[in-house]
Amino acid sequence: MNAMEKVAWTELTVSLAALVVVACLYPWLGNGATGAFGLLGILGFSVIFLRRRGQTVIVDERDRDIAQRATMLGLHGAWMTLMMTLVILVLWNSYNDRDAVSISLLNWLIWIQFAICFAVKGLVAVTAYRRQQHAS
């Protein structure tokens, strides 16, 4: 497993773990459960995998191709989810004659987009690495 594959696995597991922890804490903490999205901060430590060891190449063109495709799909997935959620939210509020959206709801939306973005990015990259390994 090369460095970028480890980064992809970290992104996938950390983002899914954050979503699971938030879902588990919600019945007790309510909106405070969004604090568990702070687990996404662990992703910052994934740079440890990218440290240089002698002259060995850590990231090459194949890794960059996969990362580019994964980032694009991750961002598009999160963006589409955000847009669709906002459309539904506006329609729902309009139907119920409400003028305002609660700040806590927007807070939830933003955090969920981050988690979805990293989860999709990680999943796409892990799948690409697995597929290439199985094909060869």
């Binding site: 090369n2 090459d60 063109e61 194949r62 890794d63 290439q132 390994q133």
Partner: peptide, 12 residues
């Protein structure tokens, strides 16, 4: 990386 050579040799 070595993994790229593996993927390349396998035609993947």
């Amino acid at each position: 990386t070595r993994q790229t050579i593996v993927a390349l040799e396998g035609g993947a």
